[in-house]
């Protein structure tokens, strides 16, 4: 194997890793604020991606405006999901399993609605910096991928600051960890939970507009992204805000290095086996803390 090939596999692994990580970040954020594993996180990305496509193609909006609007639409979707669907279930005494099933149902619904109204075609979304590439030695990376990585890192840091430094962020955490205690200190627990979903929708849609140029946007992309994002978030440890990104990068790198060193057919076997081993050896996740097993 040549050095160029290894470098290429690292660049590819990083790109894919940040894709998984961005979805995982939203998942982890919602988990931190509500203790719900959101099986429709990837569908926030679908909402963001398809909104950007429609704004660009049907209304001819400029790229930056379409992206911004798509991200805001994702936040709106998060707000609606919490208000109309998650909150009634909580009132009726939802269990951990029923939230999983509910969000899975919402994922099916979003995907079905996109299929019905937009169709089954894949849509290409232009990347930041077009299709341009940066050549590094004998390897190449898309300009857009570099932006994706930079934005992914920025989102990770902002989320960290948000949850540790701002009143709203701390209140969200408090509401999730001890709802009654938080309520006695004057925190509006219901509002905090809604805001958590708004945040999750925002991050998810951002992931969608960033992933769209790499994978093309289509109605079935949601569940696929959720599965990889879930793996990234759990692997990194749900309790640490940086976990999802670290987990995503690990998964992405293992996959792409498995391709160039072993076999492309067996890459998932290798990646998933390593994933299981890491979980058994490090029961707190890559960046987890003690006493918060499995999140």
């Amino acid at each position: 194997m040549t050095g160029g090939l290894l470098l290429q596999s690292i660049l590819t692994g990083l790109t894919n890793g940040f894709v998984y990580g961005l979805v995982g970040l939203g998942l982890a954020a919602i988990f931190r604020g509500t203790r719900i594993v959101n099986a429709m996180q990837g569908d926030f990305s679908l909402i963001g991606g398809i909104a950007a496509v429609l704004l660009l193609e049907k209304l001819q909006w400029p790229l930056a405006a379409a992206m911004a609007a798509a991200v805001l639409l994702g936040a709106l979707a998060g707000w609606l999901v919490e208000l109309i669907l998650v909150r009634p279930l909580r009132k009726r005494g939802g269990t951990e399993d029923s939230y999983l099933l509910l969000t899975l149902g919402i994922a099916f619904a979003v995907s079905a609605l996109v299929l019905y109204f937009v169709g089954r075609d894949s849509h290409a979304l232009p990347g930041i910096g077009g299709e341009g590439i940066i050549v590094v030695g004998d390897a190449a990376i898309r300009v857009h991928s570099v932006w994706l990585i930079a934005i992914g890192l920025a989102v990770m840091l902002l989320l960290r600051l948000f949850f540790t430094r701002t009143t709203v962020g701390l209140s969200m955490m408090a509401a999730a960890i001890d709802a009654e205690g938080a309520a006695t200190t004057g925190i509006d627990v219901a509002l905090m939970r809604t805001l958590t979903f708004v945040l999750g929708g925002l991050v998810g849609a951002l992931a969608g507009v960033l992933v769209g140029p790499l994978v093309t946007v289509h109605y079935e992309m949601g569940l696929l992204l959720t599965l990889k994002g879930f793996a990234a978030a759990i692997l990194g440890g749900l309790s640490n805000p940086m976990g999802a990104i670290v987990g995503g990068i690990t998964l992405g790198l293992v996959e792409s290095i498995a391709i160039v060193t072993v076999s492309s057919g067996y890459k998932d076997v290798i990646a998933m086996t390593i994933l299981i081993i890491i979980m058994i050896v490090m029961p707190q996740g890559l960046l987890g803390r003690k006493l918060r097993r499995g999140g």
Binding site: A231, I234, L238, T273, M279, R293, G294
Partner: peptide
Amino acid sequence: SGYFLALATLA
């Protein structure tokens, strides 16, 4: 246990 186990079975 928990979500780790769910992820492992997914894997």
